[in-house]
Structures are given as structure tokens and as C-alpha cells.
């Protein structure tokens, strides 16, 4: 909960968090090492000095640390735990759903867990998705289209197999599809970060919401164009938001473009924990004002209302969170441990 100077309470739902194990013990090969190293470079490059972690903590942190960083030191009220497998890089997966579920069991009122699917897994993957949906009451999944699998270096949302999985997700009541566009999709001659497939599936699956993590970065320009034409495409702010510290000027430009093209109802805050932590991100975001020249140029404003939507109201709508009821649960004496 973030309290404004006027005492107004802002309910915060963190749209993108991870409980990963990137430690050397879990790494399968050099790619596993390079993957967590790359995350660590994002962390070191964009975090304020006082929030830098040692490499060991970054590779693997415990549940208590994560809980405290999000909800005790940070301002998150709830957080969405994303599942990412990367089974070709990590022995037990990077952050598998069982690991996330253990976290959820420890702090039931705090976490929403999202599953994952990979269209390349075929029938087995569909069965797994059905089982996960039932067991974990999934309302969302995270897709990592750049995941390596055997000879495959990724897939597109427009692949026929992706359609089968999205149809199944819709049947199972999984309505929020978080998409992380990463690099290295074959064939190598195409733009590895192309977001055009989002356009296609968003049109085909009108009942699903597509939350494009990192706002389609590094293809923000193409993403904005697609998102303006689709009512069910959202932008997740992870990676864009931390620029608020090192490069507030760039952040101002990016957020103003997003507000202009997508609007304040279509943006979701996400810390991308453990890459960054909510405490400093939210303090800086709440204190942030668009510079006059940027506001004038785009004609948008980052008002308190917009901030409230971005920080929690939009995610609450997508995940059917009754904020008043949730607040009560969190403040009830029994929830004190949470």
C-alpha cells in the first residue's frame, strides 16, 4: 500500500514477479549462466546503487526475502508470480509453477500464480495445461516465445500450435496471456523481436487479454501501433519503469508515448522482481511528473488517477481482484504473518 502525502491509499498489484533459481547448481549449461548474467546486467545497470544485490543473492533468493522485499519494505499489496521454464538451460526450470505454488501457499493472500505453456509441447503440453488450470485455478499464463527447445529457438503466437493452446486456455478460463517477446526466433533472417504476431492473435481471440511485457521493447514503436488498434492488448511496464532512475528523460518519453497510444487503462505496473524491487520503483513513480515540454508535445498527463490505474486498478480488473475485500483480508489479524 502506498500512502500519498494527503493520506490517500493506493492499492498496488505487481504484475510481473519471479521466484527463480538461476544458481550455478541449477544451471545446465553456458546458456543458463549467460541468461542469469544478462538479467544481472539489467539489474546492475538500472538499479540505484543502494539497491544493488550481490550476484549470489540475485541468482537465488528465499521466499522470506522476496515476501519482505515486496510487501514489507516495498509497497506491493499483491503480486503476480510468473512461471518460466527454460528447461534447456536449467535443470529444474528457471521458475517452475511448483516453486511458485509453494510461495503462494506460504502467503495465500499475497500472490496470484500464473502458469505457462509452450505450444511445441503438443498433446502433453495441453494435458499439463488442463491439469495446472485445475490445480492452481489459473487466470493467466506467461509465454516466453524465445525459449529454446531442442533445435527450436522459439515460436510465434501465430503458429497453428499456438492457436490450439490459446483456444484451450480460453476454454479453461485462462483469460490473461502475458507475452514476453525475447530474441533469437528462427528463422534468423527475420527480426527476432517482431511483435506483429500479437496483432494477429489479439484479433482472433477477442475474449483473451494480451499483456505484452516490457511494452514490446525493444519494438515499442511497432507495439504502440498494434495496441492502438486492438482493445485487448495491454502493456506491462517492467524494464521501462526502472529507467525512471538512471534516465528519467527517456522514461518520460516512453510513458508519454504509451499514454498517448494505449492510454492509462491499458498499462500495468510490474517490478520484474528480482531484477528490481518495488520500494524504489514505486517511490520514484509516485514522485514522477512529466516534464512540461513532453506533456505539451503529446498532450497526455500522468495524473494521480492514471498512476492508481497503472499501479493496481488495471490489474485488479484483469484478475477479478475485489480491492475492498482484499484489503480486509490483508489487515485481518489472521493475516498478520502475511
Amino acid at each position: 500500500m502506498f500512502k500519498t502525502k494527503d493520506g490517500e491509499e493506493i492499492f498496488v498489484i505487481d504484475g510481473h514477479t519471479h521466484f527463480w533459481d538461476g544458481s550455478p547448481q541449477n544451471q545446465k549449461n553456458v546458456h543458463g549462466k549467460q541468461f542469469i548474467d544478462c538479467f544481472y546486467a539489467y539489474h546492475s545497470n538500472l538499479s540505484p546503487k543502494e539497491w544493488l544485490w550481490p550476484k549470489e543473492k540475485f541468482e537465488k533468493y528465499d521466499a522470506q526475502t522476496m515476501h519482505d522485499d515486496l510487501f514489507v519494505h516495498g509497497y506491493d499489496d499483491m503480486a503476480i508470480l510468473q512461471s518460466t521454464y527454460l528447461s534447456d538451460f536449467y535443470k529444474k526450470g528457471f521458475n517452475n509453477i511448483e516453486r511458485n505454488y509453494a510461495m503462494k501457499k506460504a502467503y495465500p493472500n499475497r500472490f496470484i500464480i500464473n502458469g505457462a505453456f509452450d505450444p511445441r509441447d503438443g498433446e502433453r503440453g495441453l494435458d499439463q495445461l488442463r491439469a495446472d488450470a485445475e490445480k492452481y485455478h489459473l487466470k493467466g499464463v506467461k509465454l516466453y516465445t524465445a525459449e529454446w527447445k531442442g533445435d527450436s529457438k522459439g515460436y510465434k503466437l501465430t503458429d497453428p500450435a499456438s492457436y490450439r493452446f490459446l483456444e484451450e486456455a480460453e476454454k479453461l478460463g485462462i483469460k490473461n496471456i502475458h507475452v514476453h517477446k525475447g530474441p533469437t526466433i528462427l528463422p534468423l533472417n527475420r527480426d527476432a523481436f517482431d511483435v506483429a504476431d500479437v496483432d494477429d492473435v489479439a484479433t482472433s481471440f477477442q475474449n483473451l487479454n494480451f499483456i505484452i511485457e516490457h511494452c514490446g521493447l525493444p519494438r515499442l514503436d511497432d507495439f504502440c501501433w498494434i495496441a492502438t488498434q486492438e482493445t485487448n492488448v495491454y502493456g506491462g511496464l517492467a524494464v521501462a519503469l526502472p529507467f525512471i532512475h538512471t534516465r528519467p528523460g527517456y522514461f518520460a518519453h516512453v510513458i508519454s508515448e504509451l499514454l498517448f497510444w494505449l492510454g492509462e487503462d491499458k498499462l500495468l505496473y510490474g517490478s520484474d522482481y528480482g531484477i528490481w524491487t518495488p520500494k524504489w520503483l514505486i517511490e520514484k513513480f509516485m514522485a514522477f511528473e512529466l516534464p512540461d515540454d513532453v506533456a505539451k508535445e503529446t498532450g497526455v498527463s500522468l495524473s494521480l488517477t492514471a498512476k492508481k490505474k497503472i499501479l493496481g486498478l488495471n490489474a485488479a480488473r484483469l484478475y477479478d481482484v475485489d480491492i475492498a475485500a482484499q484489503k480486509q483480508k490483508l489487515t485481518a489479524p489472521l493475516a498478520a504473518a502475511s
Partner: peptide
């Protein structure tokens, strides 16, 4: 805006790496 953002990110990642 996109290109400038990417440029800043790439420089930053290079120096962190």
C-alpha cells in the same frame, strides 16, 4: 523514442556486462 531507448539500454548493458 524506441531507438533512443534501445540505444540507452544497449550502452548500459554493455557497460554492466
Amino acid at each position: 523514442v524506441n531507438a533512443e531507448f534501445n540505444g540507452a539500454l544497449c550502452r548500459g548493458l554493455l557497460s554492466a556486462r
